[in-house]
Amino acid sequence: MKNMKKEKVYKKPAFWFFSIPPVGWYGVFMLMPLIMLWAFSFGSTNEQFQVVLTWTTKNYLTAFQPIYLKILLKTILFSALATAICLVIGFFVALYISFSSPQWKPFWLILVILPFWTNLLIRVFGVSTMLSNSGMINKLLEFFWNKIKILEEVLGWQILSGDYFEPYDMLYNYGAVVAGMVYVSLPFMILPIYSSLDKLDISYLEASLDLGASHTRTIFKIMIPMIMPGIGFGIFLTFIPSLSTFLIPDMLGGPNAQMIANVIQRQFGAGSNWPLGAALSFILMYITFAFFFGHMLYGARRDKR
């Protein structure tokens, strides 16, 4: 290894052979487009509808106007809400799997991972058919509604108003978007929590219970602090992709419930504002990077302790 380090790398044809294709591809097709997008975010459209680079900050100022700022804040808020719901469900699911008997464990894990193998588009389509007015959830509600109606007649009470079941409009609002995000991200929350729960030395939990702590107290004071790395990683894997999700609000939210990605997409559609779209893309990217580095810093600080 030491000899290899000292040899003159730049004189070797093999070095150039192995470096130029991947580094070149990366530079041209990954970095160049991002740099162009960054430059575009400081551009403006001239009379010929062409974008010229004028180093204006107008696009960023427009991006922070109430209409866009509201969508941006809603994006962060609803991503956080979806992450919180995922965390609660994911924790209990991971708890169940990690404490079930060894012969069932791999099977339960596969059950959780399997849906993740299908295409995102198809999963979101599945959620949209479920939530639609003639979808499964409304059918189920209708079934119970009719049963209660029969009960009403028998007992002579009035519990439900109306003679017919009115389907609930569950699609095309932020609730549907959050449901979609929870659906798509749940395996990403379960797996990291499961892997840290599985490594946990349970004698700590036993000690806590033996010393008289309740289950709730044991879980909150002993178990959760010990599996914090897994929870942190799960939150990271759920929250960050939710921020930039495009397909879920597009198919489940409709025009009433948009996220920042839909606004970006619209700016790049026919006859719209590319510089503003570029500015919004970079704002989204900065937010993502901020959370990414925040997570890394948090991890580094925790490991030091």
């Binding site: 487009p33 997008l37 575009f40 992709p241 930039s244 997409q265 790049f268 590319w274 779209g277 990217m285």
Partner: peptide, 12 residues
Amino acid sequence: PEICMGVSLLLF
């Protein structure tokens, strides 16, 4: 984010 990569490639 995928959407940023998508629009940057569209632009490029």
